[in-house]
């Protein structure tokens, strides 16, 4: 039990310590969607092209609402577009 508590604390700390990141496959999905342009995706999701570009580059994490809109635009589940994973320390 003590060990379990310790584990959960570590997990919580690592989440609070922002050791996780949200990555996305929007560029790949656009490619497979007949090379859909950023502008076309922006029009479908009702945001600006700059916002789509920022999301693709990982400069902006979208709201849940926008994330679902993007996933719907490609007819895939949200987990196929976005992934919440630990940051690879070798990359940082």
């Amino acid at each position: 039990m003590k060990a379990l508590c310790k584990f959960s604390t570590i997990a919580e700390e690592s989440v609070m310590g922002k050791n996780y990141e949200i990555t996305n496959r929007i560029r790949t999905l656009r490619f497979f969607a007949n090379e859909m342009s950023q502008q076309a995706l922006a029009d479908v999701t009702n945001v600006s092209r700059q916002t789509i570009n920022a999301i693709e580059l990982g400069k902006y994490t979208p709201s849940l609402d926008l994330a679902y809109k993007i996933a719907n635009a490609f007819n895939v589940g949200i987990d196929e577009v976005f992934e919440y994973k630990p940051i690879d320390p070798r990359k940082t």
Partner: peptide, 10 residues
């Protein structure tokens, strides 16, 4: 029209 959209990021 598309550039001036005030979206959630803005």
């Amino acid at each position: 029209k598309t550039d001036t959209v005030e979206d959630e990021m803005g």
